[in-house]
């Protein structure tokens, strides 16, 4: 894979070096576009692509769990992400994009443990304008919330959340969104708000984090991802519909 892309392509380092001169007006702007397009159009295909294209199928070893210990919890989370961002005519939904795997990885890391946030007490309930005031870390809130989704489903629908019709699942999520279900130690609405935000991250963050599989989240949104430069396109009246590229393209140089 890597060989394919190195041939007619300029390394990112080279590109940066040149851009100083080029952009300074010594060479003239036209060159940059060519460099950028060559470099990134031929960016190394992802594993997913090679599978789809029937190439040598390699396993995606990152598709396993770092945080959740029970399969059912992960499946409930997956289904919630899918309801938030469903598969439709535009393209894949959150499950196919790997949003739940993304969230699982985030929960075991710095974000899930609020590592860069002020978590010293005393904790008091505040006004909504004062922001998050719970002693719960994100991973604790999400874990608890998922248990509540399972319980709520059992007590109100007498069935497992995963066995319900989509409409009923949406009803449940709406109840959580509106804060109708009691969450211990945090405002009720926060659990759903967090899942919603994390789902959008899992759909649209660079695929390096485990979601946005094959950059399909970006494709649906006609978002080109990480490009080095738009200096040749910025003044154009044409809509730019190039293939997206991810940060992975920066690694093989």
């Amino acid at each position: 894979m890597a060989e394919e892309s190195t041939d007619n392509k300029m390394s990112r380092r080279q590109f940066l070096k040149n851009s100083g001169y080029v952009a300074g007006g010594v060479v003239g702007g036209g060159i940059i576009g060519g460099l950028v397009t060559n470099q990134f159009q031929s960016g190394a295909p992802t594993q997913d692509q090679s599978q789809q294209e029937g190439g040598q199928a390699t396993q995606d070893f990152s598709r396993a769990l770092t945080y959740f210990s029970r399969r059912e919890d992960f499946d409930v989370l997956s289904q919630m992400t899918e309801l938030i961002y469903p598969s439709d005519d535009n393209g894949p939904g959150a499950i196919e994009l790997g949003a739940a795997f993304y969230i699982d990885k985030q929960l075991s890391g710095a974000w899930g443990h609020n590592a860069r946030e002020y978590m010293q007490g005393p904790f008091h309930e505040g006004e909504p304008t004062q922001g998050y005031q719970s002693r719960l870390k994100r991973h604790e809130l999400i874990f608890q919330g998922i248990q509540k989704v399972k319980q709520y489903s059992q007590s109100n629908y007498d069935a497992s959340f995963l066995d319900l019709e989509e409409e009923q699942q949406i009803e449940i999520l709406t109840a959580f969104e509106n804060g109708e279900v009691e969450i211990d130690g945090a405002p009720n609405e926060q659990f759903f708000a967090l899942i919603r935000a994390a789902t959008l991250e899992g759909v649209y963050a660079d695929p390096l984090y485990g979601g946005n599989r094959n950059m399909d989240g970006w494709r649906m949104k006609e978002y080109p991802g990480n490009k080095m430069s738009y200096i040749n396109e910025i003044d154009s009246g044409e809509f730019y519909d190039e293939e997206p590229s991810s940060l992975n393209a920066h690694m093989d140089q």
């Binding site: 940066l16 100083g20 952009a23 007006g25 738009y230 200096i231």
Partner: peptide
Amino acid sequence: NACQYCAFCERFGCEYG
């Protein structure tokens, strides 16, 4: 250096200087 209109500006450092 001259701006490349790279779109990762606010909240990011500029890799072009």
